[in-house]
Design a protein around this nucleic acid. Structure first.
Length: 935
DNA sequence: GCTATCACG
DNA sequence: GACGTACGTGATAGCC
C-alpha cells in the first residue's frame, strides 16, 4: 500500500444490506434460466454496483471503498434489549440463498466486502467513518438509512443512492429537527417501531425535537423532567427514563467495532475483467455481461442457454485434512459449549446430528448432540448417557462428565431457531422431530440426503454410509462397533461417552463435508429448484404430520384378528384334509411340493431357487381348473395377510402416549419422488376387497372430529395427456368425460353411451398399462386374454393416440443421451440401466417412461402438501396422511366444509404457477368418522 | 439375510 | 429370432 490513509483521501462506505433489500424489492422475482435459482436481488445488486463504479469516476471519485453487510440477526444489542429488532420478519424465502451471492458479487467487483459477527453493518460503518475522520480524510456513507444520520458531521457525509442527493447537516436537521450530534437523543425518545426500539410512549420525532431543543440534550432533559409543563409528558419522561436510556444505547452506533484491517486495505481497485465477467456469466446476466465487456473492450463471454452439466459426484474435494476420529472434542463445560455456539454464530452454518436411545423418533430420547463447523473440527455434547455396565439393572444413573440437558437445549435453542444460521443434517427430519419434541423447531435447514436425492435419485442410496463412501471416499465407523447387534444390542445411552464422541462427531463432520461437496452441484446440474421447492420444504411438513399421527381403535383390530384366526383355522383343516396330510400352509415350499409333487398338478418350476411358484397367479389358474385346494389356500392367504400385516401388527404400532399411530415417511424412499411410508406402512392399508376395507374402519377421528380424504382423480393419465400432448385425451379431460369409456370408444368405434362394461374394463387396463410401458404379454396376462389379441389392442391404441408413441420414444432417447429423465417440475431421475444390453434393458426403458409421469404426480402432491399448512392455518384441522394421490385430514365437525374447500383449492391448483397444465386437475372428497367412511 | 408373497397407488 | 415381460413401494413369514 502506497501511503497511509489521511488528508485528501475519500472513503466510500456502501450499506450493502440496504442495497440488497432495495434490489430485491425493485425487481420482479427473476430466476436463473438454467436452474431456476432466485437471482433477482443479485441482478439488481450488480446493476447498482456497476452503476456506482461508473458514476464514481470524476469529481465524486473515492480513493477507498468498501461494502458493509450485516452478518447475522444476533448482535450485542440483543443482550441489551431482548426484543431488539424482534418485530422484524425473516427475510423472504427466495432472498435467503441470494445473500452469499451478493458477497461474491462484491468481491467480483474487486471491492472490499466487510461483515463482522455480532455487529450490525451500521456499527462497522460508524467505526470506519470515525477512523477516516480522525485520520484527516473524508468519509461518504452511501445509504439513506436514518439510523446512520447521527454520523454526519465534519468529514462525514451521506449520499442517498436513489435520489443521488447528498445528506449533510442541513438535511439531517430537516428530518430530525436537531443537528446530527443530537440525533440519537431524538431516536431514544421517539423510538422505532421497525427495529422495536421502545423509546418513550406517546413521543414522536416532533415532540422529541421540541424537548431536546429546549433542554439541550437528553440527560439534561431527563434530569429536569419535573420542570416540564405538560403533566402527561412529564410523567412519561419520569416513568420511562430507564427505557429511554436503554433506547439510546440501542440507537447509538458503536465507533469501537474491533476490525482486523486498516483503512489502507480498502484502497480503490479497478475490477478485473476476467473475474467480474466470470461471475456475471455464471449468474447468466446477459445484458450486464455485455455492458461490462463493452466497457472493458473485451469480447463478451457467451451465456449458454443450458450450461454443460457435470455428471456424477465431484471429482476431488477441497484441500481437507483426513478425518481424525480421535481429534474430536467432548463438550462437558458451559464455557466449552459457549465457545462452540460462538463459532457457529460466526460461521453462519453448522452440521448437526443427534444421538438417541432408539430409531423411532416418537419414542426415542435424546442422548447427545454433535456439531461441526468446518472440516477437522467437530464436537459431541453428551446429555443423556447413563452408567450402564454389565449388570442387568445397571445403575441407570446419568454418568459423569455431562452438562444438564435443559441447559444445553436452552443455550442451543436460539441458535437452532436463528434464521441466519443454517442447520445441516443428514436425514434431518429425524433430528428435527427429536428436537421438536423438546420444544425446538429448527430453521432454516439443509439436508445432505435430500441434496443427493435431488442430484441423483435412482442411482445409488442416499444414506450417510453410502454417501460418505461415494462422495468422500471415506468409510464411516459402523454403529455396530458401539452398540452391537442382534440380541445383545444396547441403546446409545449406554455407550461410554469416550467411545460415543468419535462416532457421533464423525457423523456431524461427514455431514458437513457432504454438504460442502453436494450443495455446489445443484446449480450446474440444474436441480436447485427441485431441491428448494420439492425436497427441502417437505421436512417440517412431514415431521408435523408424523407427529400428529392418526387415531386407531385397537379393539376393532383385535376383534378382526380373532375372526380371521377362526376362519383361518377352519380353512387350514379343510386344506389338510384335501391334501391328505398336515403341512404348513404358510410355507410356499411345502405347498409347492403338495400341489405339484404329491397331487401331480401341472405347473413348472421357477428359476433361480428351483422352487415351485405358488403365487396367486398360479393358484388362481389351478382354482379355475376346478381344484379346491388352491382355492382354499388363496382364501387362507388373504386372511393371513390381513391378520399378520394389518390387524395384528397395527395394534403394536399404537403409541402409548398418544393413542395414535405415527408412521414415518421417507422422502428419498422411491426413485420417482413418491414418498414411502414405514413403521408402519400406512400407504398400503387394504381397500380393494370388502374384508380388507374393514381394516380402514379402525382408523378413526377423535370425538367431535371427522376424517376427510381428498384424492386426485386420474392424475397420472392427466399428466400423460399433458406431457405427451394428446389432443383427444386432453379434450376428454376438459369435457369431464369418462376417460376409459372415451378410450374404448376411440379404439373400438363404439358409442360411449350404453357401453359394454367389459369393453371399458379393457380400455382401462390399457390406459394404466401405457403409463407403465405396456407390452402385449403383460396386458394379456392382466386381462387374461390371448397374447395376440392384447397386442392388437395395443397396436390400435397407438394408432389412435400416436402422440403417446412419440412421447415414449423421445423419453427413452433423452434417457439414453442424458442418463436421466426429468419431470415437468424439474425433478431429475437417473436412468442407470438404460444403455445396457440384455434383459434388464426393457425394465430400464419402462422405468424411464414411467418416471416423468409418476414423478410429476408426486411433485404435484408435494407442492400441495407444502402449501397446505398456510392454507388451513386458521382451521381446526390437521393433515395426517399422504397416500400418493390422496391426503387425509382430521378436522373438527364444524369446519369440514371449510377444510374441503381450502384443501381442494390447494390441491387442484398445486401445479401452478410453475406449470400451467393443459388439463384440469380434479380432486374428489369424502368425509366420515373413519377412513373407510371417508372414501 | 434372502426369497416369495401380497397389500397399496 | 430370442429374451423377458407393467411402474413404484413395505411388511411378513419361511428358510438357510
Amino acid at each position: 500500500m502506497s501511503n497511509a490513509f489521511g488528508k485528501g483521501h475519500k472513503l466510500h462506505l456502501i450499506d450493502g444490506s440496504a442495497f440488497i433489500f432495495r434490489a430485491y424489492h425493485a425487481l420482479p422475482p427473476l430466476t436463473r434460466k438454467s436452474d431456476g435459482l432466485p437471482i433477482g436481488a443479485v441482478a439488481g445488486f450488480c446493476n447498482m454496483l456497476w452503476k456506482y463504479v461508473q458514476d464514481s469516476k470524476g469529481d465524486m471519485a473515492p480513493t477507498h471503498v468498501a461494502v458493509i453487510f450485516d452478518h447475522s440477526a444476533k448482535t450485542f444489542r440483543s443482550d441489551l434489549y431482548a426484543d431488539y429488532k424482534a418485530n422484524r420478519p425473516p427475510p423472504p424465502e427466495d432472498l435467503v440463498p441470494q445473500f452469499p451471492l451478493t458477497r461474491e458479487a462484491t468481491k467480483a467487483f474487486n471491492i472490499a466486502c466487510i461483515e463482522l459477527e455480532n455487529f450490525e453493518a451500521d456499527d462497522i460503518i460508524a467505526t470506519l467513518a470515525c477512523q477516516a475522520r480522525e485520520a484527516g480524510g473524508e468519509a461518504v456513507i452511501i445509504s439513506s438509512d436514518k439510523d446512520l444520520m447521527q454520523l454526519v458531521g465534519d468529514g462525514v457525509t451521506m449520499l442517498d443512492p436513489i435520489k443521488n442527493k447528498e445528506i449533510g447537516p442541513e438535511e439531517v436537521e430537516e428530518k430530525f429537527g436537531v443537528g446530527p450530534d443530537r440525533v440519537v437523543d431524538i431516536q431514544a425518545l421517539a423510538g422505532d417501531s421497525v427495529d422495536n426500539v421502545p423509546g418513550a410512549p406517546g413521543i414522536g420525532i416532533k415532540t422529541a425535537a421540541l424537548l431536546i431543543n429546549e433542554y439541550g440534550d437528553l440527560e439534561t432533559l431527563l434530569a429536569r423532567a419535573d420542570e416540564i409543563k405538560q403533566p402527561k409528558r412529564r410523567q412519561t419522561l419520569i416513568d420511562f427514563a430507564d427505557q429511554i436510556r436503554v433506547s439510546k444505547q440501542l440507537v447509538q452506533l458503536d465507533c469501537e467495532t474491533p476490525l482486523d484491517f486498516t483503512l489502507e486495505t480498502l484502497e480503490l481497485r479497478d475490477p478485473e475483467p476476467e473475474t467480474l465477467l466470470g461471475f456475471l456469466t455464471e449468474m447468466e446476466f446477459r445484458t450486464l455481461t455485455n455492458r461490462v465487456a463493452e466497457k472493458f473492450e473485451v469480447e463478451a463471454p457467451s451465456v449458454p442457454d443450458t450450461p454443460a452439466a457435470p455428471q456424477g459426484e465431484a471429482a476431488a474435494g477441497p484441500d481437507w485434512p483426513e478425518i481424525d476420529r480421535d481429534g474430536y472434542e467432548t463438550v462437558a463445560t458451559e464455557d466449552a459449549l459457549d465457545s462452540w455456539i460462538a463459532r457457529i454464530a460466526e460461521a453462519g452454518a453448522v452440521a448437526i446430528d443427534t444421538e438417541t436411545t432408539g430409531l423411532n423418533e416418537m419414542t426415542a430420547d435424546l442422548v447427545g448432540i454433535s456439531l461441526c463447523v468446518e472440516a477437522g473440527s467437530a464436537c459431541y455434547i453428551p446429555v443423556g448417557h447413563v452408567s450402564g455396565g454389565g449388570d442387568l439393572f445397571g445403575s441407570g444413573a446419568k454418568s459423569d462428565g455431562q452438562l444438564d440437558m435443559d441447559l444445553v437445549l436452552g443455550k442451543l435453542k436460539p441458535l437452532l431457531e436463528d434464521a441466519a444460521i443454517l442447520k445441516i443434517g443428514q436425514n434431518i427430519k429425524y433430528d428435527w422431530k427429536i428436537l421438536a419434541r423438546l420444544g425446538i423447531r429448527m430453521t432454516p435447514i439443509e439436508d445432505t440426503m435430500l441434496l443427493s436425492y435431488a442430484l441423483s435419485a435412482g442411482d445409488g442410496g442416499h444414506g450417510m454410509d453410502a454417501l460418505s463412501e461415494r462422495v468422500l471416499g471415506h468409510t464411516t465407523m459402523p454403529i455396530k462397533d458401539l452398540i452391537g447387534s442382534g440380541k445383545s444390542q444396547i441403546g446409545f445411552e449406554q455407550v461410554e461417552i469416550a467411545k460415543a464422541t468419535p462416532y457421533a462427531a464423525e457423523d456431524a463432520e461427514v455431514t458437513w463435508r457432504l454438504w460442502q461437496m453436494l450443495r455446489p452441484q445443484l446449480s450446474p446440474n440444474r436441480v436447485t429448484t427441485a431441491y428448494e421447492t420439492l425436497e427441502r420444504p417437505m421436512v417440517p411438513v412431514l415431521a408435523d404430520m408424523e407427529m400428529a399421527g392418526i387415531k386407531v381403535d385397537p379393539e376393532h383390530l383385535a376383534r378382526m384378528s380373532n375372526v380371521f384366526a377362526q376362519k383361518m383355522a377352519g380353512l387350514e383343516d379343510e386344506i389338510h384334509e384335501l391334501a391328505g396330510q398336515k403341512f404348513n400352509v404358510g410355507s410356499p415350499k411345502q405347498l409347492g411340493e403338495i400341489l405339484f409333487d404329491k397331487m401331480g398338478l401341472a405347473g413348472g418350476k421357477q428359476g433361480k431357487t428351483g422352487a415351485y411358484s405358488t403365487s396367486a397367479d398360479v393358484l388362481e389358474d389351478l382354482a379355475a381348473e376346478g381344484h379346491d385346494l388352491p382355492a382354499r389356500v388363496l382364501d387362507w392367504r388373504g386372511m393371513s395377510k390381513l391378520k399378520s400385516t394389518y390387524t395384528d401388527a397395527l395394534q403394536t404400532h399404537v403409541n402409548a402416549d398418544t393413542g395414535r399411530v405415527h408412521t414415518s415417511y421417507s422422502i428419498t424412499g422411491a426413485q420417482t419422488g413418491r414418498l414411502a411410508s414405514t413403521d408402519p406402512n400406512l400407504q398400503n392399508i387394504p381397500i380393494r376387497t370388502e374384508e380388507g376395507r374393514r381394516i380402514r374402519e379402525a382408523f378413526i377421528a377423535t370425538p367431535g372430529h371427522r376424517l376427510v380424504a381428498l384424492d386426485y382423480s386420474q392424475i397420472e393419465l392427466r399428466i400423460l395427456a399433458h406431457v405427451a400432448d394428446i389432443p383427444a385425451l386432453k379434450q376428454a379431460f376438459r369435457d369431464g368425460i369418462d376417460i376409459h369409456a372415451m378410450t374404448a370408444s376411440q379404439m373400438f368405434g363404439v358409442p360411449i353411451e350404453g357401453m359394454d362394461p367389459m369393453i371399458r374394463r379393457q380400455a382401462k387396463a390399457i390406459n394404466f398399462g401405457v403409463i407403465y410401458g405396456i407390452s402385449g404379454f403383460g396386458l394379456s396376462r392382466n386381462l387374461r386374454i390371448p397374447r395376440a389379441e392384447a397386442q392388437a389392442f395395443i397396436d390400435t391404441y397407438f394408432e389412435r393416440f400416436p402422440e403417446i408413441r412419440a412421447y415414449m420414444d423421445k423419453t427413452v432417447e433423452d434417457a439414453k443421451r442424458d442418463g436421466f429423465v426429468r419431470t415437468i417440475f424439474g425433478r431429475r431421475i437417473m436412468t442407470p440401466g438404460i444403455n445396457t444390453k440384455g434383459p434388464a434393458a426393457g425394465g430400464a426403458r419402462r422405468a424411464a417412461i414411467n418416471a416423468p409421469i409418476q414423478g410429476a404426480a408426486a411433485d404435484i402432491i408435494r407442492r400441495a402438501m407444502i402449501r397446505m399448512p398456510a392454507a388451513i392455518r386458521d382451521l381446526p384441522a390437521k393433515m395426517l396422511l399422504q397416500v400418493h394421490d390422496e391426503l387425509v385430514f382430521e378436522v373438527e365437525d364444524k369446519a369440514v366444509d371449510d377444510l374441503v374447500d381450502a384443501a381442494r383449492g390447494v390441491m387442484e391448483g398445486a401445479a401452478e404457477p410453475a406449470v400451467k397444465l393443459s388439463v384440469p386437475l380434479v380432486v374428489d372428497a369424502g368425509t366420515g368418522e373413519s377412513w373407510a367412511a371417508a372414501h
